[in-house]
Design a protein around this nucleic acid. Sequence first.
RNA 1: GCCCCCAUCGUCUAGUGGACCAGGACGCAGCCCUUUCAAGGCUAAAACCGGAGUUCGAAUCUCCGUGGGGGCACCA
Length: 493
Amino acid sequence: MTTTPARVRLAPSPTGHMHLATARNALYNFLLARQTGGQFILRLEDTDIKRTLPGAEQEITDGLRWLGLEYDEGPDIGGPYGPYRQTERREIYQHHAGALVEKGAAYPCFCTPERLDKVRQEQQKRKETPHYDGTCRVLDPGDAARRVAAGEKHVIRLKMPQDGVTVAHDHLRGDITVENKNFDDSILLKTDGLPTYHFGAMVDDYEMKITHVLRGAEWLSTFPLHVNIVRAFGWDEPVWIHFSLFLKPSGKGKLSKRDAAEAMKEGHSTFVKDMQELGFIPEGVLNWCALMGWGVPENDVMTLPQMVERFDIDHLTASPAAVNFQKLDHFNGTHIRLLSTEDLAARLKPYFTREGLAVNDAALLKIVPLIRERLVTLDDCIPFAAFFFREIVSPNPEDLVAKGLDAKQSAEVARRAYQILSAQPTIRHEDAEPPMRAYVEESGLNVNQVFGIVRVAVTGQKVSPPLFESMEIIGKEKVLERLKRAIEILEKM
RNA sequence: GCCCCCAUCGUCUAGUGGACCAGGACGCAGCCCUUUCAAGGCUAAAACCGGAGUUCGAAUCUCCGUGGGGGCACCA
């Protein structure tokens, strides 16, 4: 276990919806920070102006807060190493890029995008790997400096070593060795003066004193480049960890936008913003995400504090993981069952309100224990408990007819139930159930038939929480009213 | 095409050379409980990608295959 405080960061681009994988990455970073008493930092990699989407930053900060992954430093809360948006850090990158050019480790490049495109196309035609041809690498530094001073458009490229190998060390995967001839002289600073991801991230990780870079495996192929940038400066390297990617449920390819739409049809999503609406709770989502890329031998139901305690960067998984929404359902239901009655009631209330139902708080507190173990998602409270808050229920007439009986016989059962219940001083379940059971005995019918009719009459549905406890909450008056209405329906059949 | 990464039940995973006829979880099947639906309890089926090597001993180390994934932008 790491004991020195870790400074870690989540560095998303505000270019789309906050993805599940971002949540998982945030979680792992958060866990390491909390476990070591370090800091979790949010930094926005917003250097691709064209792709930056309004609202995307808000979605990320909202998503993190909803999940309970509070960050210690970030664009909206500031911190000692700000600003935390890369577009606000231009001079810092320019300063560092200049230093690299000074050292001879980088150089200005005046090639136009059009020329580069042409070169690329020709290379592809010759079935070569596309790469920068090095035209400006060999320019005289003095000439280049004069052209820059004259205001000529240019980018800054890293002067990569051309022979030998680069060995980059990943904490999870060990040494990754790549021959340097496979590298390009990558662009560090774009014509617009903003850094590319590669450069911006390395500079900021250094400036922000990041100790552990925990990110997805999509960065693995550029990892040696990043290491070369850090080494060109002579900076200390952080601990690098590239964890597993999330794959489509089929395991074929990484999650895409299309998969989000597909998942929505089944009441799931790969976007964090949808989770709450779909009735998932942060505890469930977090537990689910945590176990894709990290395995525990036993007791895999964990709350955030428990995860903080047990998380271990030495036991992460390197192989990609196919997402399994059934497992999300399972963890969500499990964590719902772990909530206190008051907590669950408070979380359920908005879902009733959303349906236009007026919630009686005292009743809700009594309802929660009845439906708790039936909920997979919070919005399941509607099919299970909406009837408590409706004035009338409208049962499907056919559902009122018990199996093995006809409408007339069923009406008779309902009438007897009405008599028995109206004769009771109270409708508390301990009072109401014994006489009803006695009636079942003497009638020769079975409990399913009798209780089934009453259930449909009183709740309006075939599936409901336990009948007598439910009737107690609904109240004698309403129960009798609903029974009466059911009798009328049956008599008309 | 080139480069890199990965490989245990259908899926997520435990496993760091002997404690493994491979453990847990989801899902699936059966049973129990039960007024419906759940939840819960019990039981079952289900995996070390293939081949060489190292070793007294390999799921674990090495190599080669195969399969899967990621990347090859003035995107991140």
